[in-house]
Computed example of a mutant assay.
Amino acid sequence: MKHQSSKWLIGLKVAGATAMVFTFSGGAFSLAYWLTYWFYSKHEVDLPEYVLQLVNWGLGVLLLILIFAVVNLLVQPKQRAVWNEMMDALRRMAKGDFNVMVDQDKKYRGQIGDFIQSINDMAHDLKQVELLRQEFISNVSHEIQSPLTSIRGFASTLQREDLSAEEQKHYLSIIEKETTRLSRISDNLLKLTTLESEQQQLDRRRYRLDAQLESIVLACEPQWLEKELELELELEETEIAANEEMLSQVWVNLIHNAIKFTPALGSIRIVLRKVENNIAVTITDTGIGISPEDQLRIFERFYMGDKQRTRTADGSGLGLSIVKKIVELHQGDIQVKSRLLAGSTFEVTLPAE
């Protein structure tokens, strides 16, 4: 229907342009006829009829050319100005300056107005991408600089001769921990880059999703037993065709976050069910919750939420970004619902087939 509407609009524009040409042509030839009629009435002309018709036709063509020349002279400066403005905007964008706005007063309409709007939209989108790029570089630099500073500081301290063996062991354990953190950041960045590449292959196979979730919960048992959390599982027997290793990263990340941000004696509930043609996994905790502002950006790379959910030393700030990308690669969706001090619910929806 949209394609037919586009063809209809194009047809109208062509018809309008054709009508305008015929109007000018008709006016020019009518004026030529009346001019020759007036001239013949004032002067005796003895010429064959076909010659008179040729004279009328030639004069009409001459008048038509003059009309188009006058119109072109009137319109061309205005067209030249707007084209120069658009070319200047494109040159600035090519150099990395996206703070451009063509035709701020909205003077132009029609096709040229649509073209100008597309340039403005492109500049706006590229500006947003550039801001995200700068923020990403800043966040990566911050994440890398923090452990490097710790490593450099404690390595310098270890050169002191008055340190006891116990102190040396403590500082070396910190250096090892920060080195592991750096390695995790590097691995996660590489993982994100791989996931975002067009060559990424899912390598799907069928397996029991309920068994996978149960296995991951059991693997996390030391963490939730240490905080005396209550774990409730409601898992329907479900088969799914997916990349088992990738989805394992999704569940590990979401379950670990639920454990991390749920205070002692709290509870976590994991539900797996089929909803029409989809499979839904919900992970609900009674943790500290997420503010409405943070919920809008929680899946962004390195995004730092409120202080209660600030990344800990063993976090890379990339986990939820990886989760979202893996879910999207499976043509699925992930949503979060939360209230501060009342817990959070993450729901992952995946196609059943």
Rank of each mutant, 00 (worst) to 15 (best):
I67Q: 10
L74S: 07
A89Y: 01
T149S: 13
K78W: 13
M87I: 06
H142R: 13
I137T: 07
G113N: 09
F136W: 15
Q111L: 13
S141P: 01
S141A: 11
K107I: 00
V129N: 11
D88V: 06
R109C: 02
M101E: 07
M87N: 15
V71Y: 15
D105H: 14
L126A: 08
Q76S: 13
D97F: 02
I144K: 06
F136Q: 15
M93D: 00
M101F: 03
D88P: 01
R133E: 08
Q128R: 14
E85N: 11
F68A: 10
L90G: 00
D97H: 08
D97Y: 03
P77L: 04
D114Q: 10
W83G: 05
D125L: 08
E130I: 01
N84K: 14
A94H: 11
N84L: 07
N120S: 05
A69N: 08
Q134M: 12
V100W: 04
M86H: 10
T149D: 13
Q134N: 12
I116K: 03
K107D: 01
D103E: 01
S138A: 13
V100G: 05
A123T: 00
A81T: 09
V100H: 04
I116E: 02
L74R: 06
L74M: 11
L132I: 05
L148Q: 12
N139M: 02
V100S: 07
S146N: 10
F115D: 04
S150P: 02
L148Y: 06
L73D: 05
V70T: 11
E135T: 11
W83C: 04
K107E: 04
G113W: 09
